[in-house]
Design a protein around this nucleic acid. Structure first.
Lengths: 175, 175
DNA sequence: TTTATTTATTAATCTAGATTAATAAATAAA
DNA sequence: TTTATTTATTAATCTAGATTAATAAATAAA
């Protein structure tokens, strides 16, 4: 992970639950390393509906890598869903400093990892049912259901809270 | 893009339509730079159904970046859907050679671009209807419908060929 | 060419998940 | 506490897209 690079960059800020760290439409988006707490990044579609793109708990990084690289406006909102301590990293530092071989490989590895996560998500959205996606989510993030309201999990899975409730009911009933 | 890095690495190979360049389960996957022709990368799910992950025409690169970085078995098949000329790049060269600042930035930019494409795909799978995804596909890849059978476009969109046929019918009818 | 195979279209039926609505449970605010 | 707000559950109804099947059109093979 980016851990080694980001952990000690200073600039730790605290955010209360509900605080918005970044809004869609802003330029010059930053990278957020979560020391403590939990963030979500999400979009709001034309119908005003929220779609959670990712959760970030301790040790994770959230950022709109594409908008950083190309200096576009970001499409993502980022919000603290627990009281959180976050290291904010300017993108400039990231791309301009002299990189040694080791840092280069760390960054490549982190990007490759993220690409892998997204590939699996795309494939499962194309090929798996909501129930299968939920079960896969539970395996991948076993601790999140205790920290996150169900409607956010539904939003992450791309389904309605009602549908998730029904799925959970079915899973428990045929124990 | 990776163009500058890959274009002149030699080792151009020709593949006839229908040739399989890579199969799921193989280790040490390579990167494929398309000089001429058209490739598709896809998975086959447990039910034996094919899901196209991406198309790659002239100037594109296909590769399982995650499996390269972590030396896993790849999940992707890669197949030529036109007669194609492809530059095959060993992953080794890519990560081990000494990188200068310029190359470093090119690679970062290419990865960021790919991440952006995947982000948009995830968000549209979560929030858009099949019709909207098809219209977005037409905007993004206006030339592909002339080169690719419809059932492959359906597979890329995550729907059945029958559903795509119906959508196309609806779009033309209310001109 | 002729024949076989693959692809696209259309229609009927089905189903996973959306929508709407009402109620209960949990959480936050006063 | 009490009250207001948010979240989760359940049920009824609806709909986008899947499934099945039959037919036509296009492409590949003999």
């Amino acid at each position: 992970m980016f851990d080694e690079i980001f952990k000690n960059t200073g600039k730790t800020k605290s955010f209360s639950k509900g605080a918005i760290l970044q809004s869609a439409g802003q330029k010059l988006s930053k990278a957020y390393y979560v020391k403590k707490g939990l963030l979500k990044s999400y979009i709001i579609d034309e119908k005003g509906k929220e779609h959670i793109f990712m959760f970030a708990s301790e040790g994770w990084i959230v950022s709109d890598i594409e908008s950083q690289a190309f200096k576009n406006e970001t499409v993502f909102f980022i919000e603290a869903i627990e009281n959180s301590q976050v290291v904010i990293v300017e993108v400039g530092e990231f791309s301009q400093s002299e990189k040694n071989q080791k840092e280069f490989n760390l960054i490549l590895e982190a990007l490759a990892k993220r690409i892998g996560v997204m590939q699996r998500r795309i494939l499962s959205l194309m090929s798996a049912s909501a129930k299968e996606r939920y079960e896969y989510f539970l395996q991948t993030y076993p601790e999140l259901p205790n920290r996150v309201p169900q409607k956010m999990i539904a939003s992450y899975l791309g389904i309605t809270p009602e549908a998730l409730s029904t799925i959970r009911n079915k899973i428990t009933k045929r124990h």
